[in-house]
Structure formats: structure tokens, C-alpha cells
Design a protein around this nucleic acid. Structure first.
Lengths: 312, 312
DNA sequence: TTGTACGCGTTATCAA
DNA sequence: TTGATAACGCGTACAA
């Protein structure tokens, strides 16, 4: 491997002068610069990024914790992160977590070991408060509203669009509203925001028997509908946490030749468009871009992003 | 920042002994190990990954070049890569390319600068032959059949499933088969494999006016169908490069209240399931897993992966 | 079993 | 404007 010392020796100048040429710094005469560049070209020399990172004390890498890449929430948010990272000259490290708190802690430790400069949690199981001590080692960013906890965050403002959606439901006089939610209400910001918006609009708690949690996919949506069906719960409206999930819900009724309730999805996915159901666009790409800017220290604090209810 | 030297100084042992404890090596007495581990715990010391990488000469990072993350081909293949990387203790660096050959070359240069140990091209625009010289700097892996070129590769064997699909078409006596392909035939392995399989089954070249390239998305599929429609090309069957794309094709006819041709998709996506169209499952997760094993040097050579035609 | 000292390749400080 | 040299933090022959 050819090093900066080889270039120095062969060109007849010192490593510091070569380093200055490499980094386009001043205090190098045009002639010397030209000579050194010629040797660099001849030797086909390139600097070693790891040595450079060690010397500079930063990696230009940002870690992104992702429970499962197949969910549209994550692909959208990761797209936004990647685009912003590329523009800023950063590389993105994908860190799969499967919602495992132990694995999540492992990534915080990697941050501490300087494996990357910043860490974005697109979602997580561990308590946000446990992340705070790690801020001293690099930027830590979450992608939901962290409430009172002092941590950088970028997230969609679900309240307004959820309330708009439920007012739409209310105007149509649906009586039995099924809520098909991703994870338990105490750990999922999405789920709790849904419940809160429901209460804001309807003035009452949602019917507990009509709430299904742990629903993340088309198949889960199908199973949730099956649960409603076999237990004779007969919702006349179902609010799902994604268009694909809503598609699974509808398929259950279709397979059983039953009249389906009205359904609403989220994420503005192709399946929702095909089925002609109302949805909510959370603009997750913008959330991702904002999260990255926080992670590289180009911005600070909390970044709420506007979301849109799309009636159909 | 506390370093290994601090641990050595405070514990009263040398850095090499501390290093041995850190790396669970032999030749350390239990008592010394315990003393040192106590100091490590007290100081809350963790080793610096960058320094470790520099010293060891490798990063445990694998770069993955991805033109656009939203396409199902890439999300599936990346999922396979991530799962295998996680299992092997590697981190995955996502490298967006937008099919730009200059950007692709930039990532090969990053490999040369030791930013990662291996590089996987899920797809690319630059010629494969241009990658060969970079093999000296680390593993370079492509995700299509590289033909005679000596480079590691993991890819779906498209031939058998494409031929099975076209035989299905043939048995149904379709006469005017539209081919809706991703990129130009000379740069896309997918496109050329489609043409070859068509010729194998039908014994003739596909009708040039019925071939559309550059079709990557639902919207592109819609536009391709529009092209057929406005030019009175009247295909009676359309072979699309994805179920979502096939959905776009069908939507054009639906919007115009026209009788659609029969369509076939690929990727076994939700949209294809909803529309009840035949498709091809390429098992891209397995391809990704194989690609990673090649990239970390756990395997060598070419890894063809079997794909399945799914009639419906 | 433990310690010394050097190498990894670069950047940054300070002197010349 | 250029150069010598000390960091950066860790791993590892080799010596003891």
C-alpha cells in the first residue's frame, strides 16, 4: 500500500507539504503543488480514509436504526435520510434492530466507540430517556415527538391530520370505529396519537374491543379483520395504520363474500390508490431529511413536519 | 476521552495486557484480568473503533450501491444483505447512485481508500469490466450474471422462470406481446434476459414497436400503456417488470374504460396479489444474502439463485 | 505471563 | 512557504 510518506519521499518534500496539497490548503507554492500532484498521479496514490478519520476524530458516517426495512414508513424515511446525507457528503450506516432494546443499546455503544458521528432512531423500543446520556458521544436523533425529554427529534405532526381524518369519519356518522394500530399504546407514539385524536374529535374513549395492536403488515391487517369477524364485533369503519394493512383488512371481507366496512389507510401507498380509499400522507421523506440535518449537527432541537389527510 | 493508556496507567499494567483483556486473548492471569476489568468498568472505558480499524486494517463495513431505494428489487435485496451482515457482525453502508456512472466510480474509490472492506453493486450503469481493477482493494460484487468477466456475483437465474412465463403466454395464444422493460437492453441484464427468453420460446424476435424501456414505476407503467393506446399498437398481452408497474398499465385502460390486455408482473408484490395477476418471484432476499457472503470473503465465485413463476 | 516499543496512515502544531 | 514531529488510539511482534 502506498502511503503519504512514499509520496513525500519520492517527491522530495515532507509529508506535511503533501498533506497540504491533498487537502487543498494554502501555503503551498504552485510549483511544489504541481510536482507533488505529479508524483501522486504516478504512484496512483489515494489517502486512507480510516487513518484520516482517526486523525480528524470523525467518520462522516451516520448510523440509522431501522426495525424492518420492508415497512413503507422506513423506506420513505430512509430515502429522505440518504438524499440529505449524500448532499452533505455523509455515508449512511443501516442498523437493523427488530425492535430489540438490547440491539438498540448496542448501537448506542457503537456511537460511543466512535463508529459513527451521529445516530438516528427511525423507531425504537428502549425508553428515550435512556438515550440522553449518550448525547455526549455524538448526536442522537429520534423520529417521533419526544415530549419533555431533551433530545433532537424530527417527526410528523400526526395530531392535525388524524383529527381531520376522524372529523371526516364523524361527518359520515360511523358508529363503531375499529382502530388497527402498530404497537402497544404505551410504547408507540403512533398508537397513542391515534387514541388522543379520537378522543379529541369524538369526546369519548374508543371502544376497547375494537382496538387491535401489533398490526404491521398486510397479513396482520387480514388477521385483525378476521378477529372482528369471528367475534361479531361488526365495525362500520376501520382506521388502519397503512394502506397495505387496509388492503389486508378488505381482503378478509372479500374472501368471505361479506360487505366490508369503510376503511381508511395511511402512507399514501399504491395499494390505497388502487383501492380508492382515503389516506394520510405523513411526508416521511421530509422527516428523514430533517433527521439527518440534526444528526450531522447542521440543525438543533425539534422538527415537526406537517402531514396531509387525503379524502377519497 | 479515556484511552487504553489511561486504563493501563491507572490499573498499573501495560497497554498490551489491557489490550489482551479487551480482546479476550490468552496469556492473562485471572487475577490481572479481574483487576483490569474493574478499572475498565470504573473509567467506563470503551475502545475506539476507528483506531481499531486502522490498526487491524479493516473496517467491518460493507458498501451497498443502490440506485433508488424505493424499488422493491432493492428493498428486498438490501433486506437480505442486512440480515446476513448483521449475523456476520458487519455494518452496511448505503450508497445511493441514481444510476450515475461517475458516482459509482466514486464508491469504488472509497473502497480503494479503505472506507469499507467490500462493495456490492445491486445494480449499476458503468461497465462491469471497469470494476475488475478494483478487486485488489477489496471484494467487489455485482448482482447480475457477469458473463465471462471475472468478478464475484450473486443473481437470480431469470432464464428458466422467464421461459416458463412465456410458455404460459404461448399456451394461451397471445399474438401481440408487449414488453415493458426497466432500462436499455445493452445496459440492463434484466431487459436482455427477457428478450432472450422471448426468442427461446417464440422462436422470433419480439415486435420492436411493442418494446418499451425505461419503465421503473407505476407511473412509468401507466405511460407505457398510454403509448400503446395512443399509437393503436393494441397488444393482447403485456409482460411488465414488476407488479406495481403492471398495476400502472391496467390503470390506464381502466381510466379510459377500455378492455385491458392480459398482464403479467414480477416481484410477487402486494399489488399483483390484489389484482390477481401472474408474477415471478425472484427471491431477491436470497440474492442479497449470497452477495454479502461474497463481499465479506466468506464465499467466492458466482451464486445463481433459483426464481419461480407464479401463475394465477 | 507480562511489558516495551513500534507500526497503522493521516492531520495538526510549531519551529524554521 | 516548508519541514520535523507529535498526536490520534489501538494491536502486536518481540523481548523479558
Amino acid at each position: 500500500m502506498t502511503t503519504i510518506r512514499d509520496v513525500a519521499r519520492i517527491s522530495g518534500y515532507s509529508v506535511s507539504t503533501v498533506s497540504r496539497v491533498l487537502n487543498h490548503k494554502n501555503y503551498v507554492s504552485d510549483e511544489v503543488r504541481k510536482n507533488i500532484q505529479k508524483v501522486i498521479a504516478e504512484l496512483d496514490y489515494v489517502p486512507n480514509d480510516v487513518a484520516r478519520d482517526l486523525s480528524r476524530g470523525r467518520t462522516m458516517n451516520i448510523g440509522v436504526v431501522v426495525p424492518n426495512i420492508d415497512h413503507p414508513y422506513y423506506t420513505d424515511i430512509v430515502r429522505g435520510i440518504m438524499a440529505a446525507a449524500f448532499a452533505a457528503g455523509y455515508n449512511v450506516l443501516m442498523l437493523p434492530s427488530k425492535y430489540d432494546a438490547v440491539v438498540e443499546h448496542g448501537y448506542l455503544d457503537q456511537l460511543r466507540r466512535h463508529a459513527f458521528d451521529g445516530l438516528i432512531f427511525t423507531s425504537h423500543t428502549m425508553p428515550v430517556a435512556d438515550m440522553v446520556p449518550y448525547k455526549q458521544y455524538g448526536e442522537v436523533v429520534v423520529c417521533h415527538d419526544p415530549g419533555q425529554i431533551d433530545i433532537s427529534a424530527a417527526f410528523t405532526e400526526r395530531g392535525p391530520s388524524y383529527r381531520a381524518a376522524f372529523r371526516w369519519v364523524q361527518r359520515r356518522h360511523y358508529r363503531r370505529v375499529g382502530l388497527v394500530l402498530p404497537r402497544d399504546i404505551d410504547i408507540s407514539a403512533t398508537s397513542s396519537a391515534t387514541i388522543t385524536a379520537y378522543k379529541d374529535v369524538f369526546g369519548v374513549e374508543p371502544e376497547p374491543s375494537l382496538i387491535r395492536t401489533g398490526v404491521m403488515s398486510y397479513d396482520d391487517g387480514y388477521a385483525a379483520a378476521e378477529y372482528y369477524g369471528t367475534n361479531n364485533l361488526a365495525p362500520d369503519f376501520i382506521f388502519a395504520n397503512g394502506d397495505d394493512i387496509a388492503a389486508g383488512v378488505l381482503q378478509y371481507y372479500r374472501d368471505g363474500h361479506l360487505t366490508p366496512p369503510t376503511v381508511m389507510g395511511q402512507e399514501n401507498q399504491l395499494s390505497g390508490q388502487l383501492l380508492g380509499i382515503p389516506t394520510i400522507d405523513h411526508h416521511f421523506r421530509d422527516v428523514g431529511a430533517a433527521a439527518l440535518r440534526l444528526a450531522i449537527g447542521a440543525a438543533e432541537g425539534q422538527f415537526p413536519v406537517h402531514s396531509d389527510f387525503i379524502p377519497r
